[in-house]
Design a protein around this nucleic acid. Structure first.
Lengths: 224, 224
DNA sequence: CAGGAAAACTGTACGGTGTAAAGTACAACC
DNA sequence: GGTTGTACTTTACACCGTACAGTTTTCCTG
């Protein structure tokens, strides 16, 4: 008379993939935070320590989650022009990090790259190499592009709640004003004349900076 | 009768500044991690809860630590040419983040900017505005530059131990090779022909990307 | 089919974290 | 002297990751 057929949990109910999917789902719901092992286990109808049968430790779980995010990023099609490829993957990466803001602070710090991560970097590199970039030029380009995309994602994720502009922005600006309006005249200026303007959305800056970077790459491609 | 504090841990031995200085020092020693409230208190010869008399909570302490890092960043001198100013502050910011790697993941996520932080941003903005950038152009430039500098710092901080190149790099490359040498040909190529070459140091990429960005700003300055 | 080994999951526990709440000692002012 | 306020301590709670030692369940072998 084992009392509960209610909450499933057959022996083989768990798996690396299911755990990762649940973890990503919970992190997405929570916004910026990865769930604790106990909460994650509870969601899966299991005790916390059961997770450790599929992951050596939490770090390994985070590695898997990050790899799942990389897997969502669209890669340049083989043979496509480098500029299109780079724009596609940069936009897609930003979108993925927007969907999974908890991943922004994790993408870089993972030491053990998963296969989706490696495939990702290999594809980006390949797109550049096959369209005329030297090895060194591709290295410069990747460093620059990754820095820009990650850095932008971080700043975007740090915005007060959403990047659509509006009341949050005004609240922030009001806070700055309150502290010292005249002490920081240029901050005040940009707040009033730029960030608080009706159609403003910080996200629009992404394409502007990206185009500038891509232009620079184009100009240096031959010399590098 | 102006008695001096005879006992080591006199009543007024603690202060906001001393706590912050100790916290930054401990974080620097530890490398990537901010100390716990208990460890920090122990270092200060005090119990953990004493800290809460000077900071509302740990987040406020982190705000203060980040502001201290911003205070270390050199600002463009008033009236200096924008390109020099931007190069100075970008390099100085990267250096500061190199000295305080624990700050890299914190700079952005702080909601309450301190006065050094506000002064920093105001000075950078001012340098651009006074040298011919429009409000919008300055906004584009700041977004781009900050994204690049933060993003680069993050990637640099995530490198296995130090950015000087050498054995760590080879170990990493060996790991990739072990996983799938021929599956990721471009990764293999760049590892062998670029990253593992004797004089290589990832830090050198910083100036390359920065110059490209500054060139782009120069080119767009009038149009923005 | 028996039985044993391996795999999957649980129970309990430990040392760590941030911090709420209440208590204690001391300084300064009425 | 008494009051009040400040600086600090004590204690406690809820939560975290995870080591370690069970307890099943499954599956392979004889």
């Amino acid at each position: 008379m084992t009392d509960e057929p209610a909450t499933t949990s057959a022996r083989g109910s768990l798996s690396r993939e299911k755990v990762l999917a649940a973890a990503v789902g919970m992190a997405d719901e929570a916004g910026g935070a990865v769930p604790s092992t106990r909460k994650l286990a509870e969601r899966l109808g299991v005790r916390a320590m059961a997770l450790y049968h599929h992951f050596k430790n939490k770090d390994e779980l985070l590695d898997g989650m990050v790899d799942l995010v990389f897997a969502e990023v669209e890669l340049p099609e083989p043979g496509s022009p480098w500029r299109e490829g780079m724009r596609l993957r940069a936009g897609s990466m930003r979108a993925a990090l927007g969907r999974h803001p908890w991943a922004v602070g994790l993408m870089d710090s993972r030491l053990n790259a998963g296969t989706a991560t490696l495939r990702h970097h290999d594809a980006v590199l390949g797109c550049l190499r096959e369209d005329g970039f030297s090895v060194a030029g591709a290295a410069h380009s990747i460093s620059l592009l990754d820095s820009y995309v990650y850095g932008f994602a971080i700043q975007e994720a740090a915005l007060p709640f959403d990047a659509a502009g509006g009341d949050d922005m005004e609240a922030l600006a009001a806070g700055i004003m309150a502290q010292a309006a005249e002490a920081f005249p240029y901050l005040a200026e940009i707040a009033v004349e730029h960030a608080m303007r009706p159609g403003y959305a910080y996200g629009d800056e992404f394409a502007i900076g990206l185009d500038l970077v891509l232009d620079g790459m184009e100009r240096n491609r031959a010399a590098w």
